[in-house]
Amino acid sequence: MNLFDNTTDWVGKLNPILTKYNGRKHPLNYTNLYQLVVMVVLSAQDSDANINATSPMLFEAFPNMESLSQTNAGRLYPYIDKVNHFNTKANWLLEIAKTVQKDENIPLTINRLTALKGIGRKSANVILRELGFPAEGIIADLHVIRVAPRIGLAIETKDSLKLEKQLMQNLPKIIWGEIGMALSFLGREICRPKPKCEECPINKICEYYIDLEKN
């Protein structure tokens, strides 16, 4: 199969998961843009569950960018010390807060978001998707990195930027906004490291499953 053959009807083939997961909120339990940005930064190389457990006390102490911009690492550490690499992430958050100053100044384009410390393309794509903004890329988290090559949407790689580039070349822009999270949810629930292929709504078009059936 030519992975980058744009005549492939990926919209139709992926429609079952696009429908199943359409508009489903990201697992991070945020209530506003400020919280989403902070939680996305904290969630790098950590679990959403841990960040959800950590965040309530953090946001009680620092409810907005302005309050965060006025603190320091020593005061911030006790609220995030159960987060992986909390020292580095504290510095990122403080730099973001000092740059942005107020919630209403949080940028909302992928280039301006990724200019902030601790926010890469994956995080920026998540933020824009959660706000319902037009997609400028495709979310490529660790679940998508596992799932997309299995299906046949990309060549296997551990590099999220390389995977995102493949997906953007292979998939029509009309589904960029939802397909990343759809693949992520599929990876969280069904296409696990040990996949539950029989339960998968797109197993009939999945290269991994087709190969299993042949063997």
Score class of each variant (00 low, 15 high):
residue 1 M to G: 14
residue 2 N to H: 15
residue 3 L to I: 11
residue 3 L to E: 12
residue 7 T to D: 14
residue 8 T to N: 13
residue 8 T to Y: 11
residue 13 K to G: 14
residue 14 L to N: 01
residue 17 I to M: 09
residue 18 L to Y: 08
residue 21 Y to T: 06
residue 26 H to G: 04
residue 29 N to V: 08
residue 30 Y to S: 05
residue 34 Y to D: 02
residue 38 V to D: 04
residue 41 V to N: 02
residue 43 S to H: 00
residue 44 A to L: 09
residue 49 A to R: 05
residue 52 N to Q: 04
residue 53 A to R: 12
residue 57 M to T: 14
residue 58 L to H: 04
residue 58 L to Q: 03
residue 58 L to D: 03
residue 61 A to W: 02
residue 67 S to W: 03
residue 68 L to E: 00
residue 68 L to Y: 08
residue 69 S to C: 04
residue 76 L to F: 01
residue 79 Y to C: 06
residue 81 D to Y: 13
residue 82 K to Y: 01
residue 83 V to Q: 07
residue 84 N to C: 12
residue 85 H to Y: 15
residue 92 W to C: 12
residue 96 I to Q: 11
residue 98 K to F: 07
residue 98 K to P: 03
residue 100 V to T: 07
residue 102 K to D: 08
residue 103 D to Q: 05
residue 103 D to S: 04
residue 107 P to G: 02
residue 111 N to P: 00
residue 113 L to I: 04
residue 113 L to G: 03
residue 114 T to L: 10
residue 118 G to T: 02
residue 119 I to D: 07
residue 121 R to V: 12
residue 121 R to N: 03
residue 125 N to H: 05
residue 126 V to D: 03
residue 127 I to W: 09
residue 129 R to P: 06
residue 130 E to L: 05
residue 132 G to R: 04
residue 140 A to T: 12
residue 142 L to S: 13
residue 145 I to P: 01
residue 145 I to E: 09
residue 149 P to K: 11
residue 150 R to M: 15
residue 151 I to L: 11
residue 153 L to H: 05
residue 155 I to T: 15
residue 157 T to C: 10
residue 158 K to G: 12
residue 158 K to D: 13
residue 161 L to P: 00
residue 161 L to K: 05
residue 161 L to V: 12
residue 161 L to G: 07
residue 162 K to H: 10
residue 162 K to T: 14
residue 162 K to Q: 14
residue 163 L to F: 11
residue 164 E to S: 09
residue 167 L to K: 06
residue 168 M to W: 06
residue 169 Q to H: 14
residue 169 Q to P: 00
residue 172 P to I: 12
residue 172 P to F: 06
residue 173 K to M: 11
residue 174 I to M: 11
residue 178 E to V: 05
residue 178 E to I: 01
residue 181 M to Y: 10
residue 183 L to W: 07
residue 184 S to R: 00
residue 187 G to Q: 12
residue 187 G to E: 14
residue 189 E to W: 05
residue 195 P to K: 09
residue 197 C to S: 00
residue 198 E to T: 13
residue 198 E to N: 14
residue 201 P to R: 02
residue 202 I to M: 07
residue 203 N to H: 11
residue 206 C to E: 07
